[in-house]
Write a protein that binds this DNA or RNA. Structure first.
Lengths: 270, 270
DNA sequence: AAATAATGTGAGCACCGCTCTCTATTTGCT
DNA sequence: AGCAAATAGAGAGCGGTGCTCACATTATTT
């Protein structure tokens, strides 16, 4: 007693029908080699499908109740499985959440890449605007996912490499815009007080993400990057209540201010 | 069965001794009116003491395991109480967390106020530095508390007024510095593109926090504020891995850059 | 001294993540 | 084709959680 599977009949019912179906199949088996289930899919295909299902349900829970609202047992209930079955797909709750994190990073990365690509390649100001706007737009349509990525880290940083590379997609897009812009029209505004940045910034990494950009601008780029996420986080987490009334217009001002801060000028009519 | 109080003897033992003590007291009662327990404290005093104890234990759990690691049952175990007793002090887990949030805001606010006060009143650059440094220092000595305040909001914004006023303390300190600085030496750097900010910024609020500061600087102040917290959050949440090597020196550069961005000049030898 | 409020007890409910053993089915290899 | 291994799921159970409720005891008010 005390376990839901015992008293809850609905899950059992679904399982029963699955059993029945596969028994029917067993009597129909004709071709050797690759066996196919009722849907005509291989085991590997069913597995990926099941993983997708699990993540789909988990994502709705994430959206509705936040990261702490993700419940493995509830997922299995929804899928007509017994609670322990989910461990065939994810070793732990953290593993599932990690998968969601990676997916979210890639989804966000893709959005930003598309936004950048949709602007004219040499209109850097337009690319900057489109990228910033899509970053904020994604965070507002996926608030729980954004919080998972940029809020309090709950998976205490195992961050299995895959996470890092997925997270880097957004960074690379912005880096490319700044580099492209610098290549053609080098900024004329003075850089920040040019101390030696040996040792306190990872110049190698900056040089890779921001080729063509003089190292004296690295700090400014870091600050712009920080400002962008800071604004989005503050807005989403409610810290602008009482300061910002119209987030849309405030954000437009911010990305304009940042573009100037970065040493570029506003071009065109956009 | 299935409840820890039944099998766990340690908590019971402590309770037993408490019972014994109060029975001894019962036989000692002599003076009417205000009864005093073994410690010679009134019921109200004992209550506040118990609340302090609860928060103390909760804070260690917060520090060791994060917000999700706060367990009411574990707190009661540590205090030698039965698990349900804690609800005499907090209606729910969220209520306890809210109390911790308010305390944390006030603790941070106090730190920042002290830091500002320790600098010479007219040395605004020194006050700015001291304030920013104490903000970051507090966040690094209280990472879990900082995450509670500025990370993913988990108490989905009831924010009972008390939270807001406690949170405003830091804002007011920074506002005072900028206002004082503007009063004497008005900045000469041009403000951001001066669109009308009617409607998209809460000018009344800004005017209250930043008297003496022209409204064309409100956006810059907001951005500086955002930058400050953005840096601290990114650093604490691990998003600067691969970019910032020495956070101390990077932060010094940022607060210098912000001071210039705000239209002031670096004064003195500090 | 009696009535009332405050504090703690103990049992229990419905959850949760996770483990383990057992069974049925599919897959891969000879 | 047949067999061994891998896979997916079932079902029971462990220890933990927040929270509720009826009850006893103690302290304060009236």
């Amino acid at each position: 007693m005390g376990d839901s599977e015992v008293s809850d009949g609905s899950g059992e019912g679904v399982n029963r029908s699955a059993e029945r179906n596969s028994r029917v199949l067993a009597s129909q088996r004709s071709t050797p080699g690759v066996q196919r289930s009722r849907t005509g899919a291989s085991r590997a295909q069913l597995r990926t499908r099941q993983i997708e299902e699990i993540k789909r349900v988990a994502r709705t829970q994430l959206a509705e109740r936040g990261a702490s609202g993700i419940s493995l047992r509830e997922i299995t209930r929804e899928l007509g499985l017994v609670s322990s079955a989910i461990y065939r797909y994810y070793d732990s709750r953290d593993a599932l959440v990690t998968a969601l994190i990676i997916d979210a990073y890639n989804d966000l990365g893709l959005s930003v890449e598309v936004a950048d690509g949709s602007a004219s390649v040499h209109d850097y100001w337009a690319r900057w605007q489109a990228t910033c706007r899509s970053l904020r737009a994604w965070s507002r349509t996926h608030p729980a996912e954004y919080a998972l990525l940029y809020g309090t880290p709950l998976v205490d940083y195992k961050a299995p490499g895959e996470t890092i590379s997925a997270a880097a997609r957004v960074v690379r897009v912005i880096g490319r815009i700044l580099s492209d812009a610098h290549r053609e029209r080098a900024s004329d505004l003075g850089p920040l007080p040019d101390e030696q940045l040996n040792g306190w910034l990872d110049v190698d990494n900056f040089a890779e993400v921001l080729p063509e950009v003089p190292s004296t601008y690295y700090l400014k780029a870091l600050m712009a990057w920080t400002q962008l996420y800071g604004f989005i986080s503050f807005e989403l987490f409610g810290h602008y209540r009482g300061s910002v009334i119209d987030g849309d217009r405030a954000f437009e001002q911010v990305i304009t201010g940042l573009w100037i801060f970065l040493g570029f000028e506003i071009s065109g009519e956009s």
